[in-house]
Design a binder for these strands. Sequence first.
DNA 1: TCGCGAAATTGACTTGCGTCAAGGATGCAT
DNA 2: ATGCATCCTTGACGCAAGTCAATTTCGCGA
Lengths: 248, 248
Amino acid sequence: MASPPTCLSSVAHRTIRRTCVNCALSELCVPVGLDQKDMERLDQLVDRQQPLPAHAHLCRIGERFSTLYAVRSGCFKSYRMDREGRERVLAFHLPGELMGLDAIYPGVYQSNIVALDVGGVCALPYNDLSRLAAQIPRLQEQIFRLLSKDLSAYAWLGGDHSAEERVAGFLLDLSNRYRERGYSDRVFNLAMPRRDIANYLRLATETVSRIITRFERQGLIRTERREVQLLDLEGLNERANHCLQVTG
Amino acid sequence: MASPPTCLSSVAHRTIRRTCVNCALSELCVPVGLDQKDMERLDQLVDRQQPLPAHAHLCRIGERFSTLYAVRSGCFKSYRMDREGRERVLAFHLPGELMGLDAIYPGVYQSNIVALDVGGVCALPYNDLSRLAAQIPRLQEQIFRLLSKDLSAYAWLGGDHSAEERVAGFLLDLSNRYRERGYSDRVFNLAMPRRDIANYLRLATETVSRIITRFERQGLIRTERREVQLLDLEGLNERANHCLQVTG
DNA sequence: TCGCGAAATTGACTTGCGTCAAGGATGCAT
DNA sequence: ATGCATCCTTGACGCAAGTCAATTTCGCGA
């Protein structure tokens, strides 16, 4: 794996000409395993968009699907509205992850995707990507894998875990994903408010708050607003019943 | 769509030489949209296995992944065991549906798949399928779509629906899937015991039983053991809060 | 036909989590 | 600084669904 960036934003800004080839995320993102020649072909169809301001939407439910988005920096949230107009958070997306995959089947976006903070994305025109995938077996394979990976993540959310298991699992999942990206797996910032965490875990905000306090009293974690420090990974693992979301 | 078969088992047995080309499920399964020539190429890699007896396992968690399975007849169930050894049903699979997709990413089966009754499957060697998909864009596209479709199905299970919403949604989802396959969407048999339904919906068996009784008293359905008749689709839709699982 | 075990139903009781409500902390605009 | 809005936390209470337990029904083999 390439040497990790020191902070997320540096990934996007320190290079003059940003390409997949020199992107620190290439080992987590679509181009996994491509050689330089193929990466350059992929590069040509990638549209590196302007950074988005916080709370800007990337796409909305019902819009015609044409592009997948890869997170370059920041954290994104995808969500739907249910019949009563209540928000349902489906996923949080960290750098290197692909968004919009659930829109492929119906051809229409199935979720709203919004930047939780300033964030950058690469837009991947689906038809072009699909065509290229047919020419580069390794790329096709990687897209299959990314789709398959999301299945496991969704399956976790579907399990009937207790509130404690959910919160512990959520923290450990983030921890793993940050580690994969070269950041600390013990200290990190929650990009999303408690309300979004609770909604994602299908719990009440108050329940999440209470459990975080409980974990803190039990010496498992320390928190200071959005900043979290995991003190006892083994203990958290026990609370999560050892069933993490996706173990990379 | 081809004229529907009159009963599920006839699909598998009435032809001498069974191929994708003459399979009644080809419009629901992997070969959607392929012309006859491409379908014949697909056909060559399909291994039409012996019918499986009830409760026979197709694969087990942890086994090395090498083949996807398509349901030809019967109904299958995929499930995991959690830490405490309790079963977690992940999905039921009807004819034409693809199983094992979540194993692509890790390369190891993520769930046990078992026949609920006698049932037949087509085995699709993943590497061969993947190679062929690179040569037939329409096939690659269809695999992307099937993977994407499963994402939406899993997302429904993840929502925090009430017990009533879950049961109503489950019945309507089955209804839709049976209709797609050319069977009655009002009268059908539940291939799975209540326990499996409850487990799939993350409810207690007793809760499912109570809600079925309630729906029956309200004149929404009639049941006779495993046989179900949907009397009031609109009423069920209201109980499900109008959010069906996947609307084909 | 009988008898056994599994599946399904129903009732009584318990509980985890949601809801409601209040209070504190933080950040931003004026 | 001051006021205001948002976020987070904490407590009191209620309810939906789980658990426990008893009964009925069904399927199947002897």
